[in-house]
Design a protein around this nucleic acid. Structure first.
Length: 728
DNA sequence: CTGAGAATGATTTTT
DNA sequence: TCATTCTCAG
């Protein structure tokens, strides 16, 4: 046991060995959160306080769940089979499969991923003849998911206006459609299993009695329903051990409720919150910067990271002339770091929004620097894989109309939109599935027969054999073989067979019964719940490009945070309310704490965004970092030559001599933009609004007006004859 | 049914 | 700007 606890610092040790009780662990970035969580489980098991059966550990991502399992098996020579360790959705799926009758679901119910759900909603609107301009499918999906995540069924949603009433009605219809087709979306997995536990006393008692210790990772990311789900499961006296960091809550926009942490502390009478504040990742200056930034947020649970690793290097700051030049500088910097022997995979380039990656990628590509962008299409989301899965879904559940529609004419077999529409009308009239309707004759009968034939052909086959059969008999293989550009897609189809093989080989994926139908259903669930790796190329030494959001949980020796500008980071859509701004600040906190040894932050005076040149002020986050932690690589917030009021200056924004020539659009201005004695891109000061930057101008003489971006004060049009503007 | 051109709109994302 | 979606002609 001693080796289990060896090397833990006092708060970590305290957390791991806490006697049975509810606990809230405030775990700062890089403070050994996962280690504490897994060691806690190992300790509970090793001290005999609980058997594997009594453990429930829940995470948000499959990656985190796998990591936990991996570390646990490394610590203890134990069979992890009996333990419930997984994502919220994964565990709910498990629960619903085990009790599908009580949950009123078919045994082989399918899981809709977001794309499937959207398609289902579009289909629903079409069938009901609802104007999808007035009720955009995406909005409706958000609405429905939002209600489900708040634990509300259509009957429980309060609708005061006609519009909401209609949306609730559509929610109701959507539910009916899903039920008819035997499918469940992500939010449904949560809500359905919550309701199952709530309504079914024997089942609830069983699980409440079984799970003695419930451990939650990233607790700050739980939504209302997830918290209620946890409370329900813990209702039989289990100990809830929640680990999280309110300062790293960056998912409020998708329903995460940081308030759950406070609520948990209160409702479960957690009297000693344990804080993990010693950071094992970053050098001191980086942590000081992070601490200083996050201090600007109100209503924190409170935490201050520290390290004994020494303060390290200052944070390097760069002010670029424009986005292209910023990218060029980053490339140079990375090249020289690489020349010093630093692995490229240890360097990350972070940005607030995906649109920013283009310029960066362009520069990297031109320089021949290998890089890898996170966030592309994932394996199970690829078109050809989705098609293959649709056939498999139809074998498992012929009522799956979504799958039916996806492949009824793919590969093309002469079943056009007209035919499909007739089929849908008929199906609606008789209240049966499309497959059933198709069987009764008409053009699609052959397709229905194909599905039945597939099903028969796969009887008794193993999962990989089934996939193989489907690829061939469906004509998918032949289709892509005939296509000129089909080679990659063919390779992915082969990869799907591999995935099936691996899935079967992997222990724990298939429950003991092991019958083929169960195997298939489990594989399909796996495909929906775990869309696969973002992109290949793990092995090679490439620079890592990603949004700040996707960087959460990762760490790198060197981190660049680019585009630190008002409007971009913090994002303009977020600065209106305090809540939004605080989340942006937490995002910045997350970004900063990714760096181990060296941190670069940069901004550009001018940036091309959505086809327009934008002039952004430097992000307020620069001001929130103590100046002594920063090392300016460019003159500190130096400004261009001051304009003498009344005497026009036409100088372009300040640009280092060595920078590439400014793009024509910037140099060549229209007459209107030049008028008024101030120039676009110039920094100015206003008595009331403070400092800003001129983003537009029009008129001349006494009519001259300029548009100024005052950052947090907003963007304003000012008449030069009235407003007292001074050049800075 | 397909493919070219227009229209549109653009934080952040996992399951 | 640019990627995606939509529309309409062939």
């Amino acid at each position: 046991m001693s080796n289990l606890l060896g090397g833990l610092n006092p708060p970590q040790h305290a957390a791991v060995t806490l006697p049975p009780q509810h606990a809230l662990i405030l775990a700062g970035a890089g403070s050994g959160k996962t280690r504490v969580l897994t060691t806690r489980i190992a300790w509970l098991l090793q001290t005999g306080q609980v058997g594997p059966h009594g453990i429930l550990a829940v995470t948000f991502t499959n990656k985190a769940a796998k990591e936990m399992l991996l570390r646990l098996t490394a610590m203890l020579p134990i069979n992890t089979r009996g333990m419930w360790i997984g994502t919220f959705h994964g565990l709910c799926n498990r629960l619903l499969r085990a009790h599908h009758r009580d949950a009123n679901l078919p045994q082989l119910f399918q899981i809709l991923d977001s794309a499937d759900q959207l398609a289902a909603i579009k289909r629903l609107l079409k069938g009901l003849d609802v104007d999808d301009e007035k009720y955009p499918p995406r909005d409706l999906a958000n609405f429905i998911n939002g209600q489900k995540e708040a634990g509300l069924r259509p009957d429980a949603v309060e609708a005061w206006d006609e519009y909401t009433r209609k949306r609730v009605e559509l929610y109701r219809e959507y539910e009916a459609q899903c039920q008819r087709e035997g499918v469940a979306d992500f939010a449904e997995l949560l809500l359905r299993s919550y309701e199952l536990l709530q309504r079914n006393e024997p089942i609830r008692h069983h699980y409440q009695g079984r799970f003695r210790h419930i451990l939650v990772d990233e607790f700050q990311d739980t939504n209302i329903l997830q918290y209620r789900w946890l409370k329900l499961l813990a209702g039989g006296g289990a100990n809830l051990f929640c680990v999280g960091d309110d300062d790293q809550s960056i998912y409020a926009f998708r329903g995460a409720e940081v308030g759950n942490m406070r609520d948990f502390e209160r409702e479960f009478r957690v009297d000693n919150v344990i804080r993990l504040e010693q950071n094992y990742r970053s050098h001191g200056n980086i942590l000081d910067a992070a601490n200083a930034i996050i201090k600007h947020n109100a209503a924190r649970l409170g935490k201050n990271l520290w390290t004994d690793a020494g303060s390290g290097e200052p944070i390097r700051v760069y002010e670029a002339f424009n986005d292209t030049e910023e990218a060029r500088w980053i490339v140079e910097e990375i090249k020289s770091l690489a020349a010093e022997g630093l692995a490229r995979r240890e360097m990350a380039l972070l940005y607030r929004s995906n649109a920013q990656s283009r310029v960066l990628e362009h520069a990297l590509f031109s320089a021949g620097l290998p890089y890898r962008v996170y966030g592309g299409l994932r394996f199970f989301e690829r078109q050809e894989v989705k098609h293959a899965l649709a056939y498999l879904r139809l074998i498992a559940n012929a009522d799956d109309d979504g799958a039916f529609l996806r492949v009824v004419n793919f590969p093309a077999r002469g079943i056009g939109a007209r035919t499909v529409e007739q089929l849908q009308d008929a199906a609606r009239m008789e209240k049966v599935g499309l497959h059933e309707t198709a069987k009764r004759g008409g053009k699609a009968a052959a397709f229905a027969a194909l599905i039945d034939r597939l099903k028969a052909a796969c009887e008794g086959l193993t999962l990989p054999e089934t996939v193989e059969q489907v690829l061939t008999l469906s004509g998918l293989r032949a289709h892509y073989q005939a296509e000129k550009e089909g080679q990659d897609r063919l390779a992915n189809l082969d990869e799907l067979v591999n995935a099936a093989e691996n899935f079967v080989a992997e222990e724990g994926n298939v429950d003991a019964e092991g019958e083929v139908s169960g195997e298939l259903a489990a594989f399909l669930a796996h495909a929906s719940l775990e869309a696969g790796e973002h992109q290949a190329g793990e092995g090679d030494d490439a620079l890592q490009l990603m949004t700040v959001h996707s960087a959460k949980g990762l760490e790198f020796d060197v981190v660049f945070i680019s585009g630190l500008e008002e409007g971009l980071f913090p994002h303009e859509n977020s600065v209106r309310e305090d809540k939004g701004l605080e989340e942006e600040r937490r995002l910045m906190y997350v970004a900063v704490t990714r760096a181990r040894k060296r941190l670069y932050i940069s901004h550009a005076q001018t940036r091309m965004l959505h086809g327009q040149t934008r002039y952004n002020l430097p992000s307020r986050f620069f001001d929130e970092i103590p100046a002594e932690l920063l090392k300016w690589l460019t003159p500190k917030l130096a400004r261009g030559p001051a304009a003498v009021p009344g005497r026009p200056t036409f100088a372009a924004p300040r640009r280092p001599a060595w920078a590439e020539p400014a793009p024509a659009a910037v140099v060549r201005r229209s007459a209107a933009q030049e008028t008024g004695g101030f120039r676009i891109g110039q920094n100015v000061a206003h008595a009331k609004f403070g400092q800003g930057i001129i983003v537009n101008a029009e008129g001349a003489g006494s009519d001259a007006r300029v548009q100024v971006n005052f950052g947090r004060e907003g963007v304003k049009w000012l008449a030069l004859s009235v407003a007292k503007l001074t050049a800075v």
